[in-house]
């Protein structure tokens, strides 16, 4: 029997001033709880990997909260990625030194892709994630946005993804803004279109409701899947907060076995 292929299933947690929040379409941050408590629960649930994003650091021009990052890294016995407010190499170094495996670059990549190149050559491509926030313009075309979705760019996600790969990113986190918090499934067309242009792994984010969406994302070309709402709400009911994550048996039966 051929060995079963596993894909990474990654919870993404938004933080805002030290609090865990969940947005819808990058707006209306709702207080979910304490990030350290959430990390402890995700540890117990043996998640594959965890990503923490400070949702307003770029917008407000604030520094990463190093104290909080250190506390989170110290509790994380799985790979940890951090994004939000990283604008120069010294900040990235400080974050790596705290025990974080990967930094996520979004606004800084769009403004200064050479920063990605420099970090990738120093720390290895596997530690540099470029996140592309994708929205639809008034004609319904996909375009890339930066700075917490507040700044528009003319690049299509396919163009920006190729730029990220050429700049040296090790993987691409593809985030559909219009899917954020929607619990309506990933944008599988977007995943298909962008992954077809990439050699590095694509991680899909935005809209996942559960394992069947995750399977479909991988079948559409994603190498890994990320999700936020479905891992913080009880059975996708946004009135009821419950940190959750599918166990290995569920993932095996509903995702891995079909790959």
């Amino acid at each position: 029997m051929a060995a079963m292929r596993r894909i990474r299933v990654i919870p993404v947690l938004g933080i805002d001033r030290g609090r865990l929040v969940k947005t819808v379409g990058f707006k209306h941050p709702k207080y979910i709880g304490d990030p350290l408590n959430a990390i402890k629960i995700f540890n117990d649930k043996e998640v594959d990997e965890l990503a923490i994003v400070d949702i307003r650091a770029a917008l407000n021009g604030t520094e990463p909260d190093y104290e909080l990052i250190a506390d989170m890294a110290g509790e994380c016995f799985m790979p940890l990625a951090y994004g939000g407010g990283i604008r120069h190499a010294d900040q990235a170094k400080r974050i790596f030194d705290l025990g974080v495996e990967k930094v996520i670059m979004n606004s800084a990549f769009l403004e200064q892709p050479e920063l990605v190149t420099g970090l990738a050559s120093n720390y290895g491509a596997q530690s540099i994630v470029v996140c592309l926030d994708v929205d639809r313009n008034m004609f319904g075309k996909w375009r890339v946005k930066g700075v917490s979705g507040s700044r528009k760019y003319e690049w299509t996600p396919e163009e920006a993804a190729v730029m990220a790969e050429e700049a040296g990113a090790g993987e691409l986190l593809l985030h559909a803004i219009y899917k954020d918090g929607s619990l309506s499934g990933y944008d599988f067309d977007l995943i298909r279109s962008v992954s077809g242009r990439l050699n590095i792994p694509l991680v899909a984010l935005g809209g996942a409701r559960g394992t069947s969406d995750m399977l479909q994302a991988v079948q559409s070309g994603a190498s890994a899947v990320a999700a936020s709402s479905t891992f913080v709400y009880n059975r996708n009911d946004t009135r009821s907060i419950l940190i959750n994550y599918p166990n290995q048996k569920t993932l095996t039966e509903e995702v891995f076995r079909h790959l």
Binding site: R5, R8, A125, E171, N199, P201, S223
Partner: peptide
């Protein structure tokens, strides 16, 4: 069609 690097969990 597996990508390199090998990144993730494995038995």
């Amino acid at each position: 069609n597996l990508k390199v690097p090998h990144m993730g969990w494995n038995e």
